[in-house]
Design a binder for these strands. Structure first.
Lengths: 342, 342
DNA sequence: CCTGGCACTCGCGTCAGTCGAGTGCCAGTC
DNA sequence: GACTGGCACTCGACTGACGCGAGTGCCAGG
């Protein structure tokens, strides 16, 4: 095919996506030439549309109706997106106002997810900074009366994990100090993933009668690092699903179900590929989940230079405003990263 | 009015509620006598229905349709509920299986809310044990390098609140031990609400140069007790809202919005009155919230003898199976209370 | 390769007509 | 006085016919 027609076909696809996102109605050839200055007649557009349909990029809900983009069409639209809509000054300001003044990690995450939901008017998803990629800032052992010991682990992201353990007998302060010192010496500044191997030989450095206690403490620490607790997700804006009314033809039930199953969400987020700017998009069936066949996810890593600490995302109907959403996700991700870097 | 007809009217109301809950369709006089052995003819029932409508207990959606209970009708139905449907053995077993084996408070709450949602097939809401009604088990001060101090407060419910504070200079261990000892002596076993007044005179017991540090620590503790953090709510089963499809005629959007605004939910829970068995019910407009005009809340306190530590609840359409739901809420509340008591 | 024209398709809204469930009322019976 | 059977009436739900209009595919001509 010649260069010109192919270019125009892309322009037509782009126009169809834009119109459809705005009007939520199948778009016909006539409306298209009226709303966009394509410089050709409806009949020509019709030919192009037939070709686009042949390629599986658009489809018609029924004969004698306009065309609607398919998942594949959205995908091409997103891939060929040369320019992301920059945020308005007011929006940037809003992000700052909403995110500044957070007192701790929980608060940062909470504000982030709300900001993202408000900004995009979609469902926002924020994953807690993954423990596996952060490092140890400090480990503390606190006797809390009787044979009970509070084990506290603080990460460089400000996250605090704690656990109460039962040790055989009430430990004396001197021993505790010794364990605390050696433990910290071994792990401070190290990655959490390496902690287990770093402390493996620790019990051997103590007398036989103390080893049991040391082992119990180490178990607690490794326990805190177990996947179950480490991978937490926070949601906001689920009410936006209902607002987008007829966007999900087969009710929003399945979508809500997916959102409740954090495991599925986490898997989705962790497996997403990102483009050069750090944003990844999954459209409809690409999510490989039946409940999300009419949904799209726009995600970005955040926190940490190079490899991100965790991901945040927006979930909405496939029929969403991708340029704006992508811009919002990227902006929020950058801003949160800056905050987390302190 | 004579005693008999009044009794029968109540029976009619009860039958209407039961049928309507089951079929989700307005129920007429004929169907009523067929499905229930009321011992009278449809015509008589019609007269009773007219009276019930007069009293505002039932209503007809349109002239030539059957009757539907009003909020007031549901209220009377619930109030006159003499027997709550006991849970089946399988259900009791399910509660045990789901709730046993929780490792900490977070886990208990998490399992509870999921159990409740699964059991009732509605939205479940669990409030974290209120800090204000629990007591202090232990306070710990942990130096974490430099002028930073980790303040940890553990309650009798197993809840752990922590906060990092910046103190002027790196505190020496002796001083810290002294503060720790006096602080614990003052507050252990005391109610959190009394903590602030109990420690008021604490700074005076220290030398002038140390008072600043003591004050900073106390501030952090009082901060941890601030309402914002103490009143947390966990949800599960929001997908059930969508499943109940046409139950909410005006979409489920407003309901989801309320669920996201935890403040509203908390206010609702805290203001609910409870009957003798510890369960409270709010129906439709009684929630005093527009978004919940078609919803009902069944709540119960849990944890703590006498005055409960917090509440858990189920939220569903006004058209819900009250006897079963009330039974489930009560059973789960009792079981959680037992677990929390250890 | 684009364009104007033309016949064709098909979903949607309207309208009239029918059906039936359910009601209210009344006169009669126990 | 309470209950019952009968009867006329109401009104929403469903159905089928029908015209409208948006949109398409195709074709011949520029």
């Amino acid at each position: 095919m010649a260069a010109l027609p192919d270019d125009r076909r892309l322009a037509v696809l782009r126009a169809i996506v834009e119109d459809y996102v705005q009007t939520h109605e199948p778009v016909g050839s006539k409306a298209l030439v009226e709303r966009h200055s394509l410089g050709v007649s409806p009949a020509t557009i019709r030919n192009d549309m037939a070709a686009l349909e042949e390629d599986g990029l658009i489809a018609q809900p029924h004969t004698s109706a306009g065309r609607v983009p398919t998942d594949k069409g959205y995908r091409l639209f997103v891939d060929k997106l040369q320019s992301v809509k920059p945020l308005s000054a007011a929006e940037k300001k809003a992000i700052q106002t909403l995110l500044d003044g957070a007192v701790d990690l929980d608060d940062v995450i909470d504000r982030t997810v709300r900001t993202l939901a408000t900004l995009t008017r979609q469902v926002a998803v924020v994953q807690y900074p993954s423990l596996t990629r952060s490092t140890v800032r400090h480990v503390e052992l606190v006797p809390i009366g009787g044979p009970r010991l509070l084990v506290v682990l603080i990460t460089n992201t400000g996250r605090v994990e704690q656990r109460v353990v039962e040790v055989g007998a009430e430990p004396n302060e001197a021993l505790l100090g010794e364990v605390r010192a050696r433990l910290n010496a071994a792990v401070i500044g190290k990655r959490l993933t390496d902690v287990a191997s770093l402390v493996a030989t620790l019990p051997e450095q103590f007398g036989a009668e103390d080893r049991e206690l040391v082992r119990t403490v180490l178990e607690a620490i490794e326990d805190s690092l177990a996947i179950e607790r480490e991978e937490r997700i926070v949601l906001a804006g689920t009410a936006n699903l209902a607002r987008s009314g007829t966007d999900f033809v087969g009710s929003i039930g399945p979508v809500l179900e997916v959102l409740e199953q954090q495991v599925v969400l986490l898997k989705l987020l962790s497996e997403m590929a990102e483009d050069a700017s750090g944003v990844g998009v999954l459209i409809g069936h690409e999510t490989a989940h039946a409940g999300l066949s009419e949904a799209a996810v726009v995600a970005s890593g955040y926190g940490g230079q190079g490899e991100p600490l965790a991901r945040l995302a927006v979930l909405g109907p496939t029929r969403m405003d991708y340029p704006t959403t992508i811009a919002a996700v990227r902006a929020v991700a950058r801003y949160v990263s800056r905050i987390l870097a302190e």
